[in-house]
């Protein structure tokens, strides 16, 4: 008899957690902080940043070669061309903005809406986003070594991608 309220409380807790989870896909406040700090290390700076970006994009095109057709305008045929290097860095810079404001709900909402509008007309299939995620989830540990949390990235990338895709 004494146990009953406790069981109820536990259940309520589980339900509340599940609801919260559904909202941010497991990318909760603490997880966001973790992603932020790990991103700062991986994203790095200068020449190293260019290499990081290049590794991510090579891994994307190795999965979905057809995606290259979207980037004709930025000289995708030569991945080392200044035009495409600039583009690679631009995209990661966009991701950098989103990740760095993961802990500021309102600003984050604005930015994701903005990115959604930017991507709307381009008809990007969902599997290209998946390829981006897979690439990132492979290059990040290579860059960060042992100190990285796959689940945190899994959840937060999905959350960000959902915001950009709008569904």
């Amino acid at each position: 008899l004494k146990m009953k309220p406790l069981v109820f409380l536990l259940l309520a807790g589980v339900v509340a957690y599940a609801v919260a989870n559904d909202d941010d896909h497991g990318c909760d406040a603490l997880t966001r902080l973790k992603v932020k700090s790990q991103w700062t290390r991986a994203y790095s700076h200068g020449h190293e940043r260019e290499d990081f970006a290049k590794a991510v994009w090579r891994a994307i095109f190795a999965q979905v070669p057809d995606a290259k057709s979207l980037f004709k305008r930025v000289n995708v045929d030569d991945l080392d061309s200044p035009e495409f290097v600039a583009h690679m860095l631009r995209v990661l810079a966009g991701l950098d903005i989103v990740i760095s404001i993961l802990d500021q709900e309102d600003t984050l909402k604005e930015e994701l809406d903005h990115l959604e509008k930017q991507h709307e007309g381009r008809h990007i299939p969902d599997n290209y986003f998946d390829a981006f995620k897979t690439a990132l989830l492979h290059v990040l540990p290579a860059q960060l070594g042992r100190c990285w949390d796959r689940d945190a990235w899994d959840h937060c990338f999905d959350f960000i991608a959902k915001g950009i895709k709008g569904h």
Binding site: A55, V139, A142
Partner: peptide, 9 residues
């Protein structure tokens, strides 16, 4: 970069 060893390029 370490990321470029054995990546096919």
């Amino acid at each position: 970069s370490n990321l470029f060893f054995c990546d096919g390029h």
